[in-house]
Design a protein around this nucleic acid. Sequence first.
RNA 1: GCCCCGGUAGUGUAGCGGCCUAUCAUGAAGCCCUGUCGAGGCUUCGACUUGGGUUCAAAUCCCAGCCGGGGCGCCA
Length: 435
Amino acid sequence: MKDLRTHYSLDVSEKDFGKKIVVAGWVEDIRNIGGIAFIILRDRKGTLQVTGLKKKDPKLFEKLVGVSRESVISVIGECKKSDKARNGYEVIPDEFNVLSEAETPLPLGVVDKVESELDTRLDNRFIDLRKPDVQAIFKIRNEVISAVHTFLINKNFIEVHTPKIIASSSEGGTDVFKIKYFEKEAFLAQSPQLYKQILMATGLDRVYEIAWYFRAEEHNTRRHLNESTAVDIEMAFIKSEEDIMKILEGLVYTMWKKASECVDELNILNKKLTIPKLPFKRISYDDAVKKLNANDCKIEWGADLGTEEEKILGDIMKKEGDEFYFITNYPLIAKPFYTMPEGDKLSRSFDLECKGVELASGSQRIHNVNLLKKRMEECGLNPKDFDAYLKAFRYGMPPHGGFGFGIERFVMELLDIYNIRECILFPRDRTRLTP
RNA sequence: GCCCCGGUAGUGUAGCGGCCUAUCAUGAAGCCCUGUCGAGGCUUCGACUUGGGUUCAAAUCCCAGCCGGGGCGCCA
């Protein structure tokens, strides 16, 4: 049995001219001129042209032009130099096989001259993903995640995987999905927060996870998902939250830089990336509020920044030359119970903002079990529900902190994508459960 | 949780009480064409979210359902 493919479209070079090659992929388009026909074949790397001549082999020609668009075929033929064809060569078929015939009409055109709605595209995601610009997003996503692994492993982090089926709602706050766990009730983890903290009591010191977040909030917006991914880290023996911010800004810088090296994909998307400068500006919550008030945006001290305020602050910071910045020392009241207080009212926390959108949020955590219990109670939680978590703080827990960093939000900002659903292969939102 | 908005061929749209036997593009099917690359030309096919109501007359107005989009809150 012969190979179904010896060459990808873009891997053919001059030394192949005049030789027999085998190419395979999807029939993107057929232009039948009468006595000659051009089949545009698409594979993972690009497209190539198969040129059929009626005179040469009428039967093969009929079969070739009769195949439906987006069918999968494999073609054996001569690779012939041609200045008229797009890659400088064309394949003159001797033989071809339809590996899979596509039904017609297509539910979504790959190269049609009409746009499709996102909903239609997501309903037919496997076809949508045949488009090079859609694929480019996920190729870049792959690169930045690979940069995460390299960067964090170099900083002595180890990758961990914490459970996603959990017994109690992890942090209060957001809604969680309830599931049946045999005779018990369980929940899908909204974040790995409590588990990565427990791991700080083990001596592993630095852990990270590419984590799934499940959130049962019924929002329907272009920047929310009910199932999303994040880079979550936790590190022990820190002096302060500044140690964590250093890791985070280095990580973001590295991811951005790695993305900027995806030249082919960025060209397809028609995007240019400017690598951010380190260090990112640190601005305290107090100063952020002052800045906002000075710009006719009235905000009460203590309130979390709303979408509107975040945007305005983003504009102010951009004017001052900072696209990326940390907002530090939030009011304690706006942060979860495990956040380390700073004085009475503030916290040792930070949010990383990019152009007015929150990319990541983190803090130094409380490592004293009594303070932790006190904070739980102040937040309206019952420490008894957190026994398994609290136990880890009773037998030697070093000072520690970490952050969670949404991957889809990052990709969205990185590539300037309007709807977050485009940043994940198969989005789960308020209404979408398939595909 | 609160508040807006929308559903017309496979896809994307026009129409917003009678001119609708519903527009245009794209697509599909077929015919012509030996250098296409957004190929071209000709022919054909294909749709008003569902159920009630108003009206002489409903794609169009009203009500309800179903499906979807978005904003806010909250968050990543």
